[in-house]
Simulated scan of single mutants.
Amino acid sequence: MFRHVLSLAASLSLASLLVACGNGEPVKQPVRPAMVVKPKPAAEAMEAYPGEVRARYEPELAFRIGGKVAKRLVDVGARVKKDQPLAELDPEDVRLQLEATRAQVAAAEANLQLARAERDRYKTLLERQLVSRSQYDNAENVYRSNEARLKQIRAEYNVASNQAAYTVLRAPQDGVIASRQVEVGQVVAAGQTVFTLAADGEREVLFSVPEQVFERFRIGQDVSVELWSQPDQRFPGRIRELAPAADPQSRTFAARVAFSEGKVPAELGQSARVFVKVNGDVPLSVPLSALSAEGGRPFVWVVDPKDSTLQRRAVRTGAFGEKRVPILEGLSVDDWVVAAGVQLLREGQAVRPVDRDNRVVELAAKE
C-alpha cells in the first residue's frame, strides 16, 4: 500500500513539473523539408516503339566493274574521309584490256596517217588529171573511215582507262563504315554492295511499325525520342519517312524519325525508344510515392506557392505503372506535388520545398 501511494505521488509530481516547464504553451513544430515535383505527361498514354540511331544518309558502296577483291583497306566502325580508298580489285584483267586498247589506238593513228598521205597524193594527181574523180573519192572515203575509226578507238581507250581507276573503291564523303559484305578473294559483280557508309551529319531513329497500327502513322507526325543513355530526357522529333510496303520477313513497316532540335547527343547504333501520342488528351502522372489514400479515396499533397503550406488534393487515378501513376483529374501542370514522406504530412503544415538534390525550389514569385 505504501509503495502504491509513493508511485502515485511521484507521477503527480512529474506531471506538475512538466506543466510548469511548458507554461501551458504549445510547442512550435520546425519547418520540415519536402521533396516536390511537377506532374509530367503520363508515359502510359504514349505508345513506345524500340528503335536504333542511324545516319540519315547511308549509301551502299559498290564497285562499278566486276572482279576479284584483292585488298580490303577498312573494317566496320572505321572512320573514313572523302576519296579515301576502301577496297581494291585485282587490276590484271583491266590492265591488259587497257594495254590492248592503247595498241589499237596506235594502230588506228598509223592507218589514219597512211590514209591521209594517200588522199593527199590522189588529190595532187587529180589536179594534174592523172587519176579519175572516182579514184580520188575512194581515197577520201578511206581517209574519213580511218579518222572515224581512230575516234572510236580513243573513246574505248578512255573507257578502259576509267575502268582501271574503278578497281579502287573510294569513299564518296566523310563518315563511318556501318557494314561490310565482302571478303578478300571474293568475286563481286558490278553494283554488288561492298560497304554501307553512315555519312556524317544528321542522325535519325529507325523503328518498326506493326501492320495493325500502321494507319495511325503519317509523314510529318510529331513524336518524342528517348535515348537509353539519357532515360530522363526526351527529344522532339517528327516522322520523316514511312516505308510503303511491309518487310517480307517481319511484316512491319520501317519508319524514320528526324530530330526537330539542331543538335542531339545521339551516336550511331544507340538504342532508343520512340513515343507516339495516342488519340485524345494525355493525362498527367506523378511518382507512386506521391500518392496516398484515406477511406479508399486517393489524394496527393500539393504545396501552396504563396506560403509553402500543404493542401490535400483529391485525385482520380488511372492504371498504375511501374514507377508512376496517371492522374486523370485533380491536378494541373503548374502544381507542385510532394513526392516522398507523404504519410508524415498534415493539412496546412508549412514545409520547405526541395528537389531531389536537396536544393530549395522557388515555387512562384511572391506577391
Rank of each mutant, 00 (worst) to 15 (best):
D93S: 09
E204R: 10
F259A: 03
E118Y: 00
A255G: 09
L284T: 03
P41N: 15
L328Q: 14
V176M: 10
A103T: 13
S332P: 05
V333I: 12
E329M: 14
P26V: 06
A43F: 08
Q29N: 04
A254Q: 06
L14Y: 06
L73W: 14
V53R: 02
A243S: 13
A15S: 08
V80M: 13
R119N: 10
G66L: 04
F214G: 05
A42H: 11
L310H: 01
V27A: 05
A155I: 07
Q249D: 01
P33M: 03
G269K: 02
R356V: 04
D335N: 09
D93I: 09
V351I: 01
L86H: 10
A199I: 02
P353K: 00
S7N: 11
V303M: 06
S145R: 15
H4R: 10
K71I: 00
E99G: 05
D222G: 00
Y57F: 11
V257K: 06
R149L: 15
A107D: 12
P283T: 12
L328V: 13
Q221D: 01
V159H: 10
L291E: 11
F63R: 00
V225K: 06
D304R: 06
K263P: 03
D137T: 06
N279S: 10
T309G: 01
V105S: 07
V205G: 00
Y143V: 08
A62F: 02
S308N: 14
A15T: 08
